[in-house]
Write a protein that binds this DNA or RNA. Sequence first.
DNA 1: ACCAATTTAGTTGTGCACAATCAAGTTGCC
DNA 2: GGCAACTTGATTGTGCACAACTAAATTGGT
Lengths: 141, 141
Amino acid sequence: MLLENQVCFDVHAASRALDGVYRKELRELGLTYPQYLAMMVLWERQPVTVKELGVALRLDSGTLSPLLKRLEAAGLVRRERSAADERSVLVRLTSEGAGLRRRALEVPGRIFEATGLDLAEVIELQGTLRRLTAALDEASR
Amino acid sequence: MLLENQVCFDVHAASRALDGVYRKELRELGLTYPQYLAMMVLWERQPVTVKELGVALRLDSGTLSPLLKRLEAAGLVRRERSAADERSVLVRLTSEGAGLRRRALEVPGRIFEATGLDLAEVIELQGTLRRLTAALDEASR
DNA sequence: ACCAATTTAGTTGTGCACAATCAAGTTGCC
DNA sequence: GGCAACTTGATTGTGCACAACTAAATTGGT
């Protein structure tokens, strides 16, 4: 049961290492990695409800609520109750939030470079991780 | 720059999914996943300094100090200043902590099962992740 | 022998993550 | 129409993670 033999540790370590690189790349944008993920969803489509964001990012409201409040405090998004369904909160970009996209476009390329992987490896890795995540989600239910 | 295309998100998601499975498996042992990692190091060798634990787990003292305090509060480890070097803190298992190992031995097998991967895939994945982590550590420096 | 630089833990502050719980609103069933 | 079940977000509490800083002890150069 040696630590060295457990792939779980490697997943965990890789995740934190990624976080470190993003921290560096996103510092000038004033975003953390999870905030950047949320912004990516919003750059693709808006408005979205907190629920939809949670599905896209696999995060619950206990994580998203304070995160979105910080984005709102930073002036990047606005939140308002849906008129159609008062239970829902719609999240929209401010013009400042929308404008941040241009600067963010360069990030994925720089991250890809930092991974040191080639495209085939990335695709292979991605496939394995997705199957892994699906199996794990099933198992923790 | 679609979220769906970014392998980073998959690493992040897999890491959290793993955490979920460990949370379930470790609940009866009263350990969290990072605590379990620390215990694994201690089951292999002891005493270890906080520094050595940090190197093994890639964690800094800001994470380890409170974690070890919780393990001490749970009665699983003892901490004491090294006589040889007063800067160092030696962490040892209590007999209760050592005894926990027997019950923990079953965990890796159950986790492996939950991953749904075969051995070849695990080894492949592990190799890729280690190269990835090394490259990322280099890049965030 | 002395002092500066380094090493080692700890503390504080910020933010992510999830479980458990609550409140408010909606929907469906009778 | 009225009520139970469900949906949606927010809140609280616990724990992980790291940056920045502090404190104490050791080491090395002169």
